[in-house]
Every structure is written in structure tokens, then in C-alpha cells.
């Protein structure tokens, strides 16, 4: 576990010297800030603002669809491109420690982004009497955290399959987009299997509305574990391919 922690810390720190990470952060906060302000401004013109603390979460989910591949594309693909993967494979680090460490580093960075976005509901809370529904907000953020964890894990998996960052970015984006639209296949009747596989459904049906469902959390946790497991297998395959 120590190795995981060391790798995670290194990756986390690396984001703070990466221009790409700052570009992602700027994009996230510029769009979110703009949307938040427009909501307040339009609400003022219309004579009423919805006291909903999740005002920025919906756009944030869409932004994360693009931000996640950008944050994970480099993680393992860059090691392969730079030729440092061989060094890592011969170092006293297990394959899973490498993969989990990389994922954890990106997860911590994403947690920092999510925590910072809390400022918008906080501003709205100050303006609301007697305050926004904090329970609903907490549930939405818990859901978002689990969802983002699985998205990052998938990003790490894809990154382990490529030597170049750009195809890793687009492959991750493609995979996430596929999961995004999978719920649409469920149709009106709602085939239980496709409905259960719906990536967004698990978030919007319950967590976003303020209800923590164990099923939804386990779904995202399973995706995370599966993606990290497959990522480990992909790294390990380099030894015998």
C-alpha cells in the first residue's frame, strides 16, 4: 500500500506543474462560474431564482465528460511513450499498485475540483432563506464522487492500452460517451439489463435527487474495480506479450 500512496502523491503533485491540468481547471471554473452567474442573473430578471443547490452539478457532469479523459490520458500512456514503463515494471512495485496509485492521484485531484465547486451552492445558500437543502446537495456530491471515480478508472484503463495521449483521450471519451447514451437504449418499457447498465441513470434517478441508493454506489464501485483490474491486466500483459 505504501507504493500506492507514493505513486498517488507523485501523480497528484504532478498535476500542479502540468499546464494541461491548469487548462482543465480553468475550463471547469470558467464554464461553471459563467453558468452560475447567468442562472442568478436570468433568475433576477424573471423575478425568481430556484433555491436548488445543485445549480452547477448538471453542467459539471457534462464538463467532466471531457475533463476526465484529459486528466487520465497521460497517466500510463506517457510512461510507455517515455519508455519509463519498463523501469516501473522492473522496480519493486506490483502492477496493481502502479495502476491504483495512478488512479488515486487523479482521483485526489478530481476531489479537489469537486470540493472547490462547492463554492457556488455555498453562495446560493447565503442568499436563500432558510438555506438550501443540504442533504440533497450532499447526496448529489457523493454520487458525483463515485461516478467520477469510475470515469477516472476507465481513463486509467484506456491510458494503459496506448502509447500516445491523443488516442487515449479520444478512446476514453468514446467509452464514456457510449456509457452516457447506453441508458437511452432502455426505451420506454425499460429493459432491466440496459437500464441497470445506464451510467447516468444511476446518478440522476436517485443520487442527484437526494437519495443514496446502495445499488447505485455499488454499480459505480464495481465499474471502478473492474476498470482498475483490467488496467492491471493490461500492464501485466506487457511482461509476457
Amino acid at each position: 500500500m505504501r507504493n500506492v500512496w507514493i505513486i498517488a502523491r507523485r501523480e497528484f503533485r504532478h498535476y500542479f506543474v502540468s499546464p494541461l491540468a491548469y487548462a482543465v481547471l480553468t475550463m471547469v471554473f470558467l464554464i461553471l462560474g459563467g453558468i452560475f452567474f447567468i442562472n442568478i442573473y436570468v433568475g433576477m430578471q424573471m423575478g425568481g431564482i430556484s433555491p436548488d443547490g445543485r445549480i452547477v452539478i448538471q453542467p459539471l457532469v457534462t464538463i467532466l465528460l471531457f475533463a476526465t479523459p484529459a486528466l487520465t490520458m497521460r497517466l500510463l500512456a506517457d510512461e510507455q511513450r517515455m519508455g519509463t514503463m519498463e523501469l516501473l515494471l522492473t522496480a519493486p512495485v506490483r502492477d496493481w499498485e502502479l495502476v491504483v496509485g495512478k488512479w488515486l492521484g487523479s482521483f485526489f485531484f478530481m476531489l479537489l475540483i469537486l470540493a472547490t465547486t462547492w463554492i457556488y451552492p455555498f453562495i446560493l445558500d447565503l442568499m436563500t432563506d432558510p438555506g438550501i437543502d443540504q442533504g440533497m446537495l450532499v447526496s448529489a456530491y457523493v454520487g458525483l464522487t463515485f461516478m467520477v471515480a469510475s470515469m477516472l478508472a476507465m481513463g486509467v484503463l484506456i491510458s494503459s492500452l496506448f502509447k500516445n495521449q491523443v488516442p487515449a483521450f479520444f478512446a476514453t471519451l468514446g467509452l464514456l460517451l457510449f456509457l452516457w447514451i447506453l441508458g437511452g437504449f432502455a426505451g420506454s418499457g425499460g429493459n432491466p439489463v440496459t437500464r441497470y447498465l445506464s451510467f447516468l441513470g444511476h446518478f440522476y434517478d436517485n443520487l442527484f435527487r437526494g437519495v443514496l441508493h446502495l445499488t447505485d454506489l455499488i454499480y459505480y464501485l464495481s465499474l471502478t474495480i473492474l476498470a482498475l483490474f483490467l488496467g492491471t491486466q493490461a500492464v501485466e500483459a506487457r511482461r509476457w506479450r
Binding site: 437543502d133 442533504g135 440533497m136 447526496s139 437526494g210 437519495v211 443514496l212
Partner: peptide, 11 residues
């Protein structure tokens, strides 16, 4: 299934 309604008014 297990669930927890976190909304303040138990909506």
C-alpha cells in the same frame, strides 16, 4: 436494495 433519503424534508 438499501437506501437513505438525505433530503431535509424526506421528500
Amino acid at each position: 436494495p438499501a437506501r437513505l433519503d438525505l433530503t431535509e424534508d424526506s421528500l
